Amino acid sequence: MNYTFDFNAVSLGPLIEGLIVTLELTVAANLIGVILGFPLALLLMSRIAVIRWPATLFVEFFRCTPAIVQIVWFFYCVPMLFNVFLGSMTMGILALGLNLMAFNAEAYRAAIQAVPREQVDAGIALGLNPFQRVFYIVLPNALRASIPVLLTNGIVIFQQSALVAIVAVQDLMYQAKTLATETYRPIETFTIAALIYFAVSFPVTQVVGWLERRRQVLTS
Rank of each mutant, 00 (worst) to 15 (best):
A194R: 03
F131C: 03
V207C: 10
G13I: 06
N141D: 02
F190S: 07
F135K: 04
M173D: 01
M80T: 13
Q70E: 12
L42V: 10
R52M: 12
I137F: 01
A29L: 04
L36G: 05
G13N: 03
M45D: 14
K177R: 15
V164K: 11
P130S: 14
I71M: 08
I35H: 02
N104D: 12
L31H: 02
Y3I: 13
T205G: 01
V50Y: 13
L150S: 11
A105M: 08
I157G: 10
L98K: 04
S46E: 08
A165L: 10
R214L: 12
M91Q: 14
G87H: 09
T183A: 13
F38A: 07
V169R: 08
G37F: 04
L57H: 00
L96Q: 05
A102Q: 10
N153L: 10
L81H: 01
R133I: 10
W210Y: 13
D121R: 12
T205M: 15
D6C: 11
S146A: 15
S146G: 04
S220I: 09
A168P: 06
L19P: 13
E188T: 05
T65W: 05
E182W: 10
E17W: 06
S161R: 12
D121H: 05
A102S: 15
V200D: 12
G33A: 07
G92A: 13
E212M: 09
F85L: 08
T4E: 10
T219G: 07
N129L: 07
I192L: 15
Q119R: 10
N83T: 08
R215Y: 00
T181S: 11
Q113I: 06
P79H: 10
V200T: 13
V72M: 15
V167H: 03
N141P: 00
F135R: 09
L143R: 08
V208R: 09
G37N: 01
Q216V: 06
A165M: 09
R214T: 14
L150T: 12
E17T: 05
P14I: 04
G209N: 12
E118N: 10
I192H: 12
A102I: 07
V149R: 12
L218M: 15
I112T: 02
I147T: 13
T219A: 15
L43K: 11
V167A: 11
V50H: 05
T189Y: 03
